[in-house]
Simulated assay, not measured.
Amino acid sequence: MTVQLSILDFQRLARIVQNLPDFGNVRDRRRLVAGALQGVAQADIILARLDLDGAPMGVSVEVVRFLAQFGRVAYDKEALAVFLNYIQPFTGDEDTDFIIELFRNYPLDVPVSPSRGIGNWKGVDSTSDIKEKIIGENTLRDIYILNLALEASKAVVRIATPDGLGTGFMIASDLLMTNNHVINSQEVGEKSDFSFNYQLDIKGKQCPTQTIGALAGGVFYTNEALDYTVVTLKEVPGFGKPLIFKSKLMRRDDRVAIIQHPGGHLKKISIQNNFVAYADNQVLQYTTTTEPGSSGSPVFDDDFQVVGIHHSGGMLLEPNTQQKYLRNAGTSAIALLSDLKNNTPEIYTRLQR
């Protein structure tokens, strides 16, 4: 199947691709396309057949034309859809809205979940702040944390809803947690797909993935203010152990890590040079790399226990101050556990704590 873009849509998309930060030369273009197709079985074929040499405008036209005509790749996605989901975080607001509109108007797939109105960010507080942290941090870690990370990653799930893509994680044998702005109702949950093991293996090849649905009429709970949802899945594969919550008040400069499906793509981890910037019993703010599609990811402490759920990023107001900083943010596990204990004890009693 190919994607037949209108002339105006084709021309605008070509201009967007031309203006991408990594489209100035052949080497960067190849890296960009290879990154978009990481884990796709046909990636080598596409890269071998795609001519990336020439002036940016001409090459952008060729890229859009070729990917639109290539057809489907992994998980019944169009090659063009995979590329668009990858570049969307690197475009401005108007171009992002245009890309999302393409997904609505053409049989592509679904775009990554939109942000909560706080700009996309891969962030730092300031150049001087982050340099001080990176240079001053002791980056030596005990090797066992790699085992903890790998074990925890088994419970992290890619979510495809009718409106977008996100991330979730298993908190019991059949219960998954994600953001309210990813799944805000039982109806949306029951129309969503949940993919386990969507990642690369030790040889850099895509792993076999199992995709299941939500259990119709299963336990469901959501809290818009805290931006989280719990949904029951059906026929859950053997994914490992549910993640463990830690009702722990984090402190400034504590390390955190996030395992996520950024942009709805293959599972990734952000583990280095990530620090808590602010924490109280409800709010976590931190310097950790994420992208749209990372919404609903677990925020881990050094023991890879869940201390929060990620929901957004951008210029955030630090509570109790008048200062705004470029940060990512989530809801603290303290608030999550308290809310579940008070409002859904049937879920609370099943959690690993």
Rank of each mutant, 00 (worst) to 15 (best):
Q323C: 12
Y286D: 05
F70Y: 11
A277V: 13
Q42C: 09
P262M: 06
L337G: 02
S295R: 05
A214N: 02
P237Q: 04
S195K: 10
I334D: 00
D174T: 10
A74S: 14
I134F: 08
S173Q: 14
G54K: 06
R141Y: 02
Q18I: 03
A79Q: 00
V17N: 04
F245I: 00
N19I: 03
Q4V: 14
F300V: 00
P111H: 02
G238A: 13
F194P: 02
Q4Y: 13
T96P: 07
S312I: 08
Y278K: 03
D93G: 08
K234S: 14
S6R: 11
I334L: 09
K268L: 10
C207M: 14
D95L: 05
H311S: 05
H261Y: 06
V283I: 12
P56H: 06
L243A: 05
L200P: 05
T209W: 04
G71P: 02
D76A: 09
D129R: 09
Q352Y: 12
S270D: 06
T287N: 08
L8T: 15
G296W: 01
Q88H: 11
T139K: 14
G168I: 01
L80Q: 01
F245K: 06
G58A: 05
M170F: 09
P111A: 07
P89K: 07
A155F: 02
I212H: 00
Y86F: 11
Q42K: 11
R104H: 11
V110D: 01
P162L: 04
D76I: 03
G39M: 01
W121S: 15
A155N: 02
K341L: 09
A214Y: 00
D302K: 09
Y198M: 10
A14L: 06
M177K: 05
L266W: 02
V188N: 08
M177Q: 07
L317F: 00
R31D: 12
R12V: 03
G240F: 01
A55C: 11
D142E: 14
T288Q: 10
S297P: 05
D254Y: 07
D28Y: 00
Q322W: 10
S60Y: 03
T91L: 05
L140T: 15
L316I: 10
V299H: 03
Q69G: 14
L148R: 04
K77C: 07
A335E: 04
Q352T: 15
D280L: 07
V306N: 01
L266M: 11
I145W: 12
D51F: 02
N328Q: 11
P208K: 12
T222L: 09
V112P: 14
S312P: 08
K246M: 01
N180I: 00
